[in-house]
Design a protein around this nucleic acid. Structure first.
Lengths: 341, 341
DNA sequence: ATTTTTAGCGGGAACGGTACCGGGAACGGT
DNA sequence: ACCGTTCCCGGTACCGTTCCCGCTAAAAAT
């Protein structure tokens, strides 16, 4: 129990060579069944465990996946849970690093994981990230890479993402169907892909319904409850305030809700509200907030599966892109018409 | 970019020996400044990175911390964030494994991390875990171990925990101060330390205030919203129902709240409610739920700091136990008396 | 009876890096 | 002129495992 037994210890004790012991333990060729049994018996007795470090060193693989995420909020925790689940099954352990939405931290994390020699990367970029040299460095070393959720369009690799445009469409169409006409959107930072895609869905849906987008109703703010709260206050103070708001996250929806309540407005009568992510909190607040479900857990699992698949296939194939379809869960914050139940 | 440059490559190119190159790169003694410069220049040019795997293999340390947690809920995510923060600072990377509240998974995770040869463990046990052989195995190999949050009293190692008794006391005392007399408690599984400690605080506070505990008001149920909902329904259906409920988690408080609302009772007038963890959701629901803050982020950081300290000190010291003091945040669900503002 | 095969095992190299020891050269002091 | 020191560098071992090659002896084939 002091020192881990090694293959050498077994070899000496049994007057065999290291090679023979190694073969015996691996059920390899060229080994007499008696010797094999003897070796295995002693190995069990000494509680022999092969030294993973030596193996990793030899094979140049660590059976470890580096996961870089911007934070550990509800959505990403759930995704990590899915990743962890599949990875464990496949014999991999994950190293989770949070960039904390900071570009600098993301780079540090990448470096760290790179020289920890992880077998590959699963990355969701931070909202601050605008250049991608660190990501390209991963690729230039031929290390498998999968992007998920917050993907980057001009990086060529397998990706798992939500159909964010569709998410924007179903949320906006729902508000229109409920009779709302001046629909505002609380979007995220301007360079954030998922935000822009959801907004794209919002814009096209407006157009298709003959509504002309109003720039004053399009607000970019941080992915954050407080900012959303303040942005909503400003929206409601306008001369022609919106009659409904679509926020691209539930945390922002909560912020909007607080501002709406403070103003004394009622949902869904005076104003409609639709959020994104379908976090549990949306069904706990009063009124319940309609929200777009993005199936985080499944997305995490899909990501890990795609990653494992990528590791095991040596052929260079066209990078696939797994797209998850979102679904709207309607609650009181936007259900104005009794017709649609 | 095909192959990582090694120390040998530099040595050959410069007609030096591996040893010399190694010394030059490490600014070691016995090295002429010219050779040092030459080596460093070539190293930079070849983008030389020392092979961490070889180093780990040599030094028998991986600069990796194995973290085992029951899940990734709000509290534990926040703690992990704190751990990650401190670990990164100290040059360590964390491997997070979720046991998913399953004893079996916890054992698998332990094995995995053990033969990944992590430098140490930071563990919070699952609610299912009743025997601790896997934990003791870690100790028998002289691998540093810190327990946090869900600690185990009969394991002798450094621990970081909340003063759970105090948490139970301040919650219960608050309810008594607000004039509640029949106080129920929704506790967790019976073998869960944190649950029992919070209940201990509950019981002693009742006694000190001359209230005799009623067994019917003490409910053990899973750490789960749904169970809490059902347990509360049963409580409210009693002949002498409680006039207030203390739940040992906010998720359970939410479950209780739903049952209370369904019954048509009002908080805080008809019934009082206090939760635990002070999750953001407590201030978002209506009415806001009073809750005991446990400073998860600080707790995570404290845990990691204690762990690092432990790694760096070779002396065998008496295991310290860091105890975090909780604080009650009063909201509408229990603020019955105007006197206390 | 001689050659060829085959089973079973040992010896060494290799992976990338560091530590330790040793040794030559230059230099200083006596 | 001799010895001791210091400066620089090289050689080798080692970490634990696998892999490749080669060896021996017995079994099989000719």
């Amino acid at each position: 129990m002091e020192k881990q037994a090694t293959i050498k210890d077994i070899a000496i004790a049994l007057r065999l060579s290291k090679s023979t012991v190694s073969r015996a333990l691996r059920d390899a060729h060229d080994i007499k069944s008696e010797t094999k049994e003897a070796v295995k018996a002693l190995a069990a007795q000494l509680d022999y465990q092969p030294n993973k470090l030596a193996l990793s060193f030899l094979n140049k693989q660590t059976h470890t996946i580096g996961v870089i995420i911007p934070n550990l909020d509800y959505v990403l925790s759930t995704m990590v849970k899915g990743i962890d689940e599949v990875a464990l099954e496949a014999g991999y352990t994950v190293m989770v690093c949070q960039s904390d939405e900071s570009f600098g931290r993301e780079i540090v994390n990448t470096k760290r994981l790179l020289d920890s020699l992880v077998d590959g990367f699963i990355v969701s970029v931070s909202s601050e990230t605008k250049v991608f040299e660190h990501i390209k460095k991963i690729q230039s070393k031929n290390i498998p890479l999968v992007l998920f959720d917050r993907i980057v369009s001009n990086i060529d690799c397998p990706k798992v993402r939500l159909d964010n445009v569709a998410g924007g469409v179903i949320a906006t169409q729902h508000l229109i169907d409920q009779g709302y006409k001046r629909i505002a959107i609380l979007a995220g930072p301007e360079n954030l892909n998922i935000s822009n895609k959801r907004m794209e869905g919002y814009l096209t849906t407006l157009s298709e319904n003959g509504i002309k987008p109003d720039k004053k109703l399009i607000i970019h703010c941080d992915f954050n409850q407080q900012y959303a709260y303040e942005a909503t206050k400003e929206l409601l103070a306008m001369k022609h305030p919106p009659d409904s708001i679509f926020t691209i996250s539930d945390r922002m929806a909560i912020g909007a809700m607080l501002a709406i309540k403070e103003k004394g407005l009622r949902m869904p009568t005076d104003i409609g509200l639709v959020g994104f992510n379908n976090e549990p909190v949306t069904s706990l607040v009063t009124p319940g907030i309609s929200s777009v479900e993005m199936y985080s857990y499944e997305m995490g699992k899909a990501t890990a599966r795609l990653f494992i698949e990528m590791l095991h296939s040596n052929e260079v194939t066209v990078p696939p892109e797994v797209v998850i379809k979102p679904k709207l869960f309607v609650r009181e914050s936007s259900k104005r018409l009794a017709s649609k139940k």
